[in-house]
């Protein structure tokens, strides 16, 4: 088993453990989850950062940002 495969298995194991420990949260208990800072996504103010990171680095995607098209990449 390669080092890379071991890392991915470890990450998968941690994720599955977290998912398995889920508890049901009632609507009235979601005040923290509904806080604006808890959004599972990029905030609008990060738009330019995501754009230059995708042009200045070879890697892109899996972050909700644009994955192709519309260059602006000089």
């Amino acid at each position: 088993m390669t080092k890379h495969t071991r890392k991915m298995l470890l990450l998968g194991g941690i994720t599955l453990t977290l998912l398995a420990s889920c508890t049901v949260v009632k609507e009235y208990q979601k005040n923290r989850l509904n806080d604006g800072e808890m959004t599972l996504g990029n905030r609008k103010v990060e738009k330019t950062e995501l754009s230059f990171e995708s042009y200045r680095e070879g890697a892109s995607g899996a972050n909700g940002a644009k994955s192709g098209g519309g260059c602006g990449c000089n």
Binding site: L19, S21, C22, L33, L40
Partner: peptide
């Protein structure tokens, strides 16, 4: 996924 009242992923 909501994990609990403080944690989501």
């Amino acid at each position: 996924q909501i994990v609990n009242s403080r944690f989501q992923l």
